[in-house]
């Protein structure tokens, strides 16, 4: 519900959007632009690096019909010193304005920090759009998305959705919207499984792990998914090689009686990885590991142009690695 104009809270004249998470940045900008358009304002959007010194004054001056425009500037951290100084001056000048005048988009980080501090120093509003990196944050994000569209998302549903759709926020937001529209608004793990079956973050490492664990069906399924979502065959081949190499190194070091920290130093892998490889090692013989290394090497040569079909070469390698596990 809109408040009457007279009691309208004062919008920030200067807004700084800080961060690299593209979806959030775009949304923040879109909100500012929509607010400005809603009161009939003019909006000009451009990339800060294209600004010539002196051009800023022209851009911020009122249009023919009297309104001063909202100026959206992207990549402000890339500007040269001349333009940055003008921007700081423009921020100061805009402070007392009644309407939004400037939206500065800054990637964060040390570059262009002086400009960022100056803009915030004169009372600019800061919107943080830091890169979402932790799984927990992604779960919070999908929860917020579901809330925003009026759906309820259960805990296991949120986790399943993040596992199934991946790390890209845009994909997650789209998935939330789709699920919200397709269901009666109650989303749980069963619903997610019905729509997004199988496709987790399919990558070469998942293929390699399943293969050395001897789970042929799952390994092939992961391989198909990985190829289908566009993982480069070379990366899958190299992940397979790394998996097999870890087996060989940990296996031979452990058979020499190395334990714990010594073992980790010897093979150059972090301890958590070693525990996992040790679990994978059950059932492998040295001859089997050697055969698996050959299979990985063959696949590597094939995906680099030695063969005609990378997918076939990788499937063959996965089959060979799983079969090598039974060599005594």
């Amino acid at each position: 519900m809109l408040a009457p104009m007279s009691t309208k809270t004062k919008t920030a004249a200067v807004t700084v959007v800080v961060g690299e998470e593209e979806l959030l940045v775009e949304r923040a900008i879109a909100a500012c632009v929509a607010a400005a358009r809603a009161v009939g304002g003019d909006v000009r959007e451009l990339v800060a690096t294209e600004l010539e010194p002196g051009q800023l004054a022209e851009l911020t001056s009122p249009s023919l019909f009297g309104d001063e425009p909202l100026l959206v500037l992207r990549d402000v951290e890339q500007t040269g010193k001349d333009v940055a100084d003008e921007l700081i001056a423009a921020c100061r000048a805009a402070t007392d304005a009644e309407e939004a005048r400037l939206v500065l988009v800054h990637r964060g980080g040390a570059r262009g920090k002086a400009l960022l501090d100056a803009a915030l120093g004169v009372g600019g509003r800061r919107i943080d759009c830091a890169k979402v990196t932790k799984p927990g944050e992604r779960i919070d994000f999908v929860r917020a998305e579901a809330r925003a569209i009026g759906a309820t998302l259960s805990d296991d549903g949120a986790r399943a959705l993040v596992d199934a759709v991946g790390n890209e926020l845009r994909d997650l937001a789209a998935a939330c919207a789709q699920l919200g529209a397709d269901t009666d608004g109650r989303i749980d793990a069963a619903v997610v499984a019905r729509y997004y079956r199988g496709r987790a973050e399919a990558n070469g490492f998942a293929v390699a792990d399943r293969a050395v664990e001897g789970r042929l069906g799952e390994a092939l399924e992961q391989l198909r998914w990985a190829l289908a979502v566009g993982t480069a065959p070379v990366l899958i081949a190299s992940a397979l090689a790394q998996g097999v190499r870890a087996l060989a190194k940990v296996g031979s070091a452990a058979s020499r009686g190395l334990r714990g920290g010594d073992l980790a130093r010897e093979v150059g892998l972090p301890p958590w990885k070693i525990d996992r490889v040790k679990a994978q090692l059950r059932g492998w013989s040295p001859a089997g590991v050697a055969a698996a290394v050959h299979a990985a090497a063959e696949a590597d040569a094939a995906v680099k142009g030695g063969g005609t079909d990378a997918g076939y070469a990788l499937e063959k390698a996965v089959l060979a690695v799983v079969a090598a596990r039974d060599i005594r």
Binding site: S238, A241, V293, A297, A301, G305
Partner: peptide, 17 residues
Amino acid sequence: LLDANANPLLTLESLML
């Protein structure tokens, strides 16, 4: 294989085995 741009480490490992 090395001439065909195969991964040197992997190819050498396979060779040594």
